[in-house]
Amino acid sequence: MKRFKAIAAASVLSTAVLALSACGEDTASNETDGGETRTFKISHVTQESHVWHQTALKFGEELEALSDGRMNVDIYPASQLGQEKDMVQQLETGSLDFGFLTNGYMSTRQDSLNAWFMPFTFKNLEEAAALRKSAAAKQMLEELSSQGLLGLDFAFAGNRHILLKDGHVQSPDDLKGKKVRIIGSPAIQEFWEKTGAGPTAMPLPEVYTSLQTGVIDGIDIDLDALATEKYYENAENLTLTNHMTFPTVIVMSQQVYDSLSPEDQKIVKEAISKAVDWGVEEAIAREQKNLEELKKIGVKVEELKDPSSFEAITKEVTDKYSSQSEVIKSFLEEAKK
């Protein structure tokens, strides 16, 4: 990853750094004949091998190319800058420029984002990704402005499946009494409670050990995270359910965005769009690749043969949330087209 290389003299740089520190501004910037130069900070929760990190890298490449090298990125993966609540605070103050935030966390801050977690809405990742540019999805991004965030796009890790230490899942009965790690989201929590399982929200870094020690019996997981985080080392029974999808909400600090020239704002948006287009295709390609690799490793894979066994639960959840939010209602209607 290329970093910004100063052109000005060392004494000028020192003065600039001191000035930035006094203002509480963490983004490196300087003036050159070609305009302002910046190194933006990006943070997310996943490992460097994860598709979200690779999408962030692609964004850096596109940004550098479109800006003729004036704008670059530093990426802080695996919660290096804190948990997501900390990242949002940093984005609000402008000390962090971009966040690839899980829709799970963000749905606790904005109700309409629960739309992505309506059960059994998408049969595969392609169907989910197609809704990224829907009117309802764009409305979700616009609503983030109330939090001092500029919603830019949605990228994907994959659809959600169920990994258990013991047994597979063919109906809600197979989940009763199971302690299952979930993402802490209202809609996800409600779905899992209705299955009869004991849903347990916990940060990603705690999941591996919790499976290993028996604190939890299984996890709600996408294939990319399963492969990159190696949870299969402690639980080997994977049921392909496609019961939900799992986006990242890509946001920028509104404060930082407003500080850019109109030309640079346009470059940022174009670079994000190109990177996410690439990332979505990469995530779709990884679905099959990850599944094949997991089977080779020895993970015991079954498919959910009859999704209708979850039909009653699905209806309860979708009816409730669509009645509470016009955005969710619109999103589900678009998904059915």
Rank of each mutant, 00 (worst) to 15 (best):
L294P: 08
Q147M: 12
I183L: 09
V215E: 10
V12S: 11
Y232E: 13
T46S: 10
Q170N: 12
N72Y: 13
D74F: 09
V180A: 02
D111V: 01
L141Q: 01
M202I: 09
K133F: 09
A335E: 00
Y208T: 12
Y76G: 07
K266G: 10
S330G: 03
A19V: 13
A9I: 13
E61I: 00
F122T: 02
G35Q: 02
G151N: 06
D173C: 08
D68A: 13
G184W: 07
T200R: 14
R70C: 05
E92A: 14
Q110D: 02
L240K: 12
I42S: 00
K274N: 15
E326Q: 15
Q139H: 05
F310V: 06
F191R: 06
A56R: 02
Y231H: 15
Q89S: 15
E293F: 06
L131H: 00
E270D: 13
I328C: 00
V280F: 00
V299Q: 09
K289M: 11
A283T: 05
C23Q: 15
S21F: 11
T39A: 13
N103G: 14
Q288S: 14
S107C: 04
K266Y: 13
E334V: 08
S273R: 12
V169W: 03
Q324D: 07
D153K: 03
E62M: 01
E292P: 01
A157N: 12
G99S: 08
Y105W: 11
T241V: 15
D319M: 04
Y208E: 11
P307N: 03
Q288K: 14
E282Y: 04
D217T: 00
R160P: 05
S21P: 06
L144A: 01
D153S: 06
H243R: 05
A28R: 11
W278N: 05
S49T: 14
T93A: 09
T245W: 05
Q288M: 13
A157R: 10
H168D: 09
T55C: 04
I250G: 06
S29M: 08
S185Y: 03
L149P: 05
F98W: 01
L294W: 10
V251T: 07
